[in-house]
């Protein structure tokens, strides 16, 4: 009978495991399995030099200490980057006190230039390029587009996974300007390579 009891216990365990699995799977439906929370919120943004995309020389985020900074990672093959482009341009034109940095990533210079030629540039935007993935590593980038908000002390305070929209951008900046706390959000899927 000892054996019977063992089997009953085992069945109960298996049943419990099944229920757990069911709950876990149901909770996953519709979620993007690729999104990962960033541990970088609350840490200092990188001080590495970043090359300009369409001109000689480089910049560093430390140059902007004292100002709010928006760092946006994009590429010409990234579909959501097209969706958020207008919001970024408008934001850069409206929030003149905020520094905007557009990091072109995993792209070719020609494609990147024609992307901007087609969709428009803002003079207030600093277009830079991360040709060796050093900046992307420093920001823990997992896909495109991703946008980071940096406060006046150079601390990363929030991250947006997926395409930005203007209300989100403006709302976040307004809160930061008056010194409030902002939250990271996910607006949609990020893309990891052309086509996919």
């Amino acid at each position: 009978m000892k054996q019977r009891r063992g089997i009953t216990v085992m069945l109960a365990l298996v049943g419990a495991a099944l229920v757990v699995l069911l709950v876990v799977f149901v909770s996953r439906f519709g979620l993007d399995p690729s999104l990962v929370a960033s541990p970088l919120i609350g840490t200092n943004a990188t001080d590495q030099p970043i090359e300009f995309m369409e001109k000689e020389g480089s910049m560093s985020l430390t140059d902007y200490r004292g100002d709010l900074v928006v760092v946006n990672f994009w590429a010409s093959w990234c579909l959501s980057c097209r969706l958020e482009h207008d919001a970024l341009i408008r934001g850069a034109d409206v929030y003149t006190g905020v520094r905007f940095v557009g990091v072109n990533y995993q792209d070719t210079p020609e494609n990147a230039a024609s992307f901007l030629d087609t969709l428009g540039r803002s003079d207030a935007f600093n277009y830079v390029v991360d040709s060796e993935s050093r900046i992307a590593l420093d920001f823990g980038v997992l896909g495109l587009p991703e946008t980071f908000f940096i406060d006046r002390e150079g601390v990363i305070v929030a991250k947006v996974n997926g395409p930005l929209n203007y209300p989100l951008l403006a709302g976040t900046l307004d809160t930061m300007l008056v010194g409030g706390s902002v939250e990271s959000v996910t607006t949609g899927e990020v893309q990891q390579r052309p086509g996919g």
């Binding site: 799977f25 996953r28 439906f29 979620l31 399995p33 690729s34």
Partner: peptide, 8 residues
């Protein structure tokens, strides 16, 4: 697992 998209 292959067909539901819950796992990458």
């Amino acid at each position: 697992l292959t067909r539901s998209g819950v796992i990458l």
